[in-house]
Design a protein around this nucleic acid. Sequence first.
DNA 1: CGGGCATCTGACCGATCGGTCAGGCATGCT
DNA 2: AGCATGCCTGACCGATCGGTCAGATGCCCG
Lengths: 182, 182
Amino acid sequence: MTRAAPERHDDILAAAGRRFAQSGYRGTSLQEIAADVGCSKAAVLYHFADKRAILAELVARPIDQLRELDERIAAASSPAEAQRVAAEGFVDLAVQFRRETAFLRGEFPGLFQQPPFSHLQHIPDRLARAFAGHSDHPAARVAALVILAGIAETCGEFIDLPEAELRPALLALVRRALEPVN
Amino acid sequence: MTRAAPERHDDILAAAGRRFAQSGYRGTSLQEIAADVGCSKAAVLYHFADKRAILAELVARPIDQLRELDERIAAASSPAEAQRVAAEGFVDLAVQFRRETAFLRGEFPGLFQQPPFSHLQHIPDRLARAFAGHSDHPAARVAALVILAGIAETCGEFIDLPEAELRPALLALVRRALEPVN
DNA sequence: CGGGCATCTGACCGATCGGTCAGGCATGCT
DNA sequence: AGCATGCCTGACCGATCGGTCAGATGCCCG
């Protein structure tokens, strides 16, 4: 036997994550994932029920954290506190799961349209509203969406930046960028 | 005959643009584009040499504007001026081509790896450096990349926002978010 | 009226997709 | 030694991919 099964499992997840970040879920084939790992397509499907199961496992923990953040935002006592909780919570999530956020946002529609994540489909909108300080002003909403998308899409590019540098940089950016709640 | 050829040509581009924004170039099939237009796959290939020609035509004008912006940035007399030219130029480009920027950034690697756009592959990096005020400080680079990616990825969501509202909102956001050059 | 052209379609091509399955190999246990 | 199990593979499946092509249809012009 060549490698331990758990190592192979993790290798497949890592290779799939890189490919999903580069070409999206639909633009990635099982054959490509297998070639990156150095095994056969059938081996990939030995470890995972199907292609969608790979995506589901990759995003399970970040999405669970997103759900918890959504609850903490809902429990905030004011729009200003909700914005602060949202900003710090999302930055922490993005820094912790920077590999996964590189493709997570792009897959939101597909993930939330059917089980097992369909009950979470309103979270991105609630998060955006919290970031905007619950303001209906278009400028606040524009700033909120740009910052959320920008953080999500680029964290994958800061893989090598230490958390002690990335986290404060993102927090400072978010503070400057978002319109304060008055 | 059903519709004028120029109308069909434009319908195909519009349908393809929407699909590319949703699923990426690789995640979109000619069959899906044809179904959205209401014609056959062969009709799509009657109007365009191949699938890649559709993408090339969609991005030709925004990429040409990006190239012109790159030249104006290179001609700036200081990092502060380069940052201002980059910020205003990129916002204008994103507002003007908001449908295309929704998928353009995601296709950059694929577009720049081979003709006809391979000579432009360093433009995104130069743009990011101008946004960062040519600072090597990680926080400046983080802010630059997050803002660039955020604007590119979300402009498609502001299709219905009038330019007179979107443009100042983005410019104000960019001014707040970027670290000033000292 | 007939020819030429533009536009379009269904059938078809080879290649690849996601996924299945019989079988091989190594290990561990009796 | 033989059996069970885990891990893996190549061959294969039906479906779809990007793309081609012969032929149909309608319009325009001489």
